[in-house]
């Protein structure tokens, strides 16, 4: 199985699962937080290319990572979000604090 998190320099690339719900969001949070303990990371990049479903649990997970990165002087970015995911990100207002491209 391909690793969910991949460290490249001081960036952490996270492959978001197909369905980012409560269960998956909890797992992803643990995984990312574990990586942040071991390494100096300036930016966490969530890659949504495979993701077709997300609910408010996913939003909570993203906002939580944004907060922990901000405390360390870093940031969070979302890439390859499809139309559906973009709509949910916009509705939730997270685009105000997280870069989406």
């Amino acid at each position: 199985m391909k690793e969910i998190c991949e460290k490249r320099g001081n960036k952490l690339y996270v492959t978001v699962p197909i369905e980012l719900d409560h269960v998956e969001a909890d797992q992803l949070r643990q995984e990312v937080e574990r990586m942040l303990v071991d390494a100096v990371i300036r930016e966490v990049i969530f890659d949504f290319r495979n993701t077709v479903f997300m609910d408010s649990s996913g939003i909570g997970m993203l906002m939580g990572r944004q907060r922990s990165m901000q405390q360390m002087g870093g940031c969070v970015r979302v890439i390859h979000a499809g139309e559906r995911i973009q709509r949910i990100l916009e509705l939730s207002g997270v685009y105000k604090v997280i870069t989406i491209n």
């Binding site: 408010s56 949910i88 509705l91 939730s92």
Partner: peptide, 22 residues
């Protein structure tokens, strides 16, 4: 209310009902 949650420690976003309404 959007963003209102009683469980911020669980990283709940407070957007559940807002999404149902949307």
């Amino acid at each position: 209310e959007p963003l209102y949650t009683t469980k911020p420690q669980l990283e709940r976003s407070g957007m559940g009902f807002a999404f149902m309404e949307a």
